Amino acid sequence: MLNKHDTGLVVVDVQGKLAHLVGDGHQVIQRIATLIEGAKALGLPIVWLEQNPTKLGVTVPELALLLAPLSPIAKFTFNGCANEAFCNAVEQANVHNWLVCGVEAHICVYQTALGLKERGFNVEVVVDSIASRVEASKDLAITKLATKGVGLTNVEMCLYELVQDCRAPEFKTILNLIK
């Protein structure tokens, strides 16, 4: 079970034109925005990745605005865990559970989630907040991740799991985000 004291969020490569070319792109961006706002309300650490931003573009403005004042970690490897700055940020967050969202499901999200799992973290991919250009690629990523022991969740499920109690001070915020 996730808890807000031991969980963080990784946002993977929601950048440039690609973020809008993936299946259900606009809705996925909206769900990632909800997830970021929920993570912030719950006080979760957030780590933000960008794949080769000079070539692919920067994070879409609607998410970059929510993620500020954080700075993205630029990477060139598909697996964020092959990047020293990312690994340092993950370690400094001092949590054991990571939620992962972003683009593309079958490449950078898949490899980063497995990289975190291989480093001993509990990982859950937020399946309604990941996307690929081809739906079958997203489906394949989800299937392979599940067979390798990565948990699956969605925005509403993980946020309510993290808030745990309707009397919690963050509950109203989470409720309003989900509505």
Rank of each mutant, 00 (worst) to 15 (best):
E84Y: 01
F86Y: 10
C87H: 03
C87I: 06
A89Y: 00
E91A: 15
E91D: 06
Q92S: 09
A93M: 05
N94R: 15
N94A: 15
N94G: 07
H96K: 13
W98S: 08
L99V: 05
V100C: 04
V100G: 07
V100S: 09
C101I: 01
G102I: 07
G102K: 07
E104I: 12
A105W: 03
I107D: 07
C108S: 13
C108F: 02
C108E: 03
Y110F: 13
L114Y: 00
G115M: 04
L116E: 02
K117L: 04
R119Y: 07
V123F: 06
E124D: 10
E124Y: 06
V126W: 00
V127H: 03
V127T: 15
S129F: 01
I130A: 01
I130S: 05
A131I: 01
S132Y: 08
S132N: 08
R133L: 10
R133F: 02
R133S: 04
V134P: 08
E135A: 08
A136M: 12
A136V: 14
S137T: 09
S137C: 07
K138H: 04
D139F: 00
L140F: 04
L140Q: 11
K144I: 14
K148V: 00
K148L: 09
G149W: 00
G151D: 08
G151C: 08
G151W: 00
T153W: 03
T153N: 05
N154L: 09
N154G: 15
V155Q: 08
E156P: 10
E156G: 09
E156F: 08
E156R: 14
M157W: 11
M157T: 15
E161Y: 03
E161S: 12
L162W: 07
L162G: 14
